[in-house]
Design a protein around this nucleic acid. Structure first.
Length: 295
DNA sequence: ATTTATGTTTACAG
DNA sequence: CCTGTAAACATAAA
């Protein structure tokens, strides 16, 4: 699923379109994806205005005028599609599942938000994704606050913020006995990084994903730290590896996919050396690297 | 405490 | 038919 850059791209596009707009209706088609009590939704979501759309790690947050927020995690196969009224303003982000080409709603549509200027569809083939509703301040409800919720995951700070420090990253890397690949896809180490950007960051740092985490030198850890930030920023710059905005099928893909250096390039020539990109499995997960220049 | 194996769920390719 | 695979994690058990 969408990793940090994909969610960031999605959030930027969505903000442009729905900031200031009002939510008129919420239709839940699958309880598993959105299990909040209807009373809460009616009280704090329906008729609320969108103040801001932002990202935290891989989560999208929609702040509302009621003081409550929607938090959305797309997990592996979630996607958000916005159709503006008159269908001239369309955008989508998340999993590049083919069915986005079909008319909406369709069988993978799990939640429908009707807004004053269009409709926002939450589609999710595998139903791993979720939508939550939380107050930004404690409003004497039994609910925990948004910040408490976000902190409850105990993930590392967002790698694109100042709070994500080299010192903490180094500590995390140097005591783990798993491979460096496993270390950096662990959300406690580098939140927002998933399989694609982990592969890309290791290529950038010229480190093999098979190396033991605790065997990296200080210098390598620093290089990797910088590379993680760089590949995430690069991903955002190119609009992610999935579609961001679209009007037709051709324009659907984000530009980052063509920009990937190792991910999904098994058997192809390395961009940096005469080597060939290899695919292997680490703990059941597909990992790509160049054995010649990643040591 | 970390690490591993498994579960969540659907669709597609071979 | 079956097997393997997929962009993410949570959780229980070791």
């Amino acid at each position: 699923m969408p990793e940090l850059p994909e969610v960031e791209t999605l959030v930027q596009g969505l903000k442009k379109r729905i900031a200031g707009e009002k939510i008129r209706e919420v239709e839940i088609r699958n309880q598993k994806n959105f299990s909040t009590d209807r009373k809460i939704i009616k009280k704090f979501i329906v008729d609320a205005r969108v103040i801001d759309v932002r990202r935290y790690q891989k989560m999208a947050i929609i702040d509302l005028s009621t003081g409550w927020s929607l938090v959305i995690h797309l997990k592996m196969t979630g996607q958000l599609v916005f159709h503006g009224k008159g269908s001239k303003e369309q955008m989508a982000g998340g999993h590049p599942e083919k069915s986005y080409e079909h008319p909406l709603p369709h069988k993978h549509t799990r939640v429908i938000f009707s807004l004053s200027n269009g409709i926002l569809y939450f589609n999710d083939l595998r139903k791993f994704g979720w939508v939550k509703v939380l107050p930004r301040q404690d409003r004497q409800t039994r609910s925990i606050t948004l910040d408490e919720f976000l902190n409850s995951f105990q993930y590392s700070p967002d790698p694109l913020t100042k709070e994500w420090k080299l010192e903490d990253f180094t500590k995390n890397i140097q005591y783990r006995k798993v491979t460096i690949y496993q270390s950096i896809i662990d959300q406690k180490v580098a939140s927002g990084v998933g399989n694609i950007y982990a592969n890309e960051a290791l290529f950038c740092a010229r480190i093999s994903p098979l190396r033991k985490s605790n065997a990296l030198s200080k210098k390598e850890v620093k290089k990797l730290y910088e590379c993680i930030k760089d590949v995430l920023k690069e991903g955002i710059k190119h609009g992610g590896t999935t579609f961001s905005d679209y009007r037709n099928v051709e324009g659907a893909m984000g530009q980052m996919y063509q920009n990937l250096k190792v991910y999904d390039r098994e058997g192809e020539k390395c961009f940096r050396c005469p080597g060939v990109v290899k695919r292997t499995k680490i703990n059941g997960r597909s990992t790509h690297y160049c054995p010649r220049c990643q040591k």
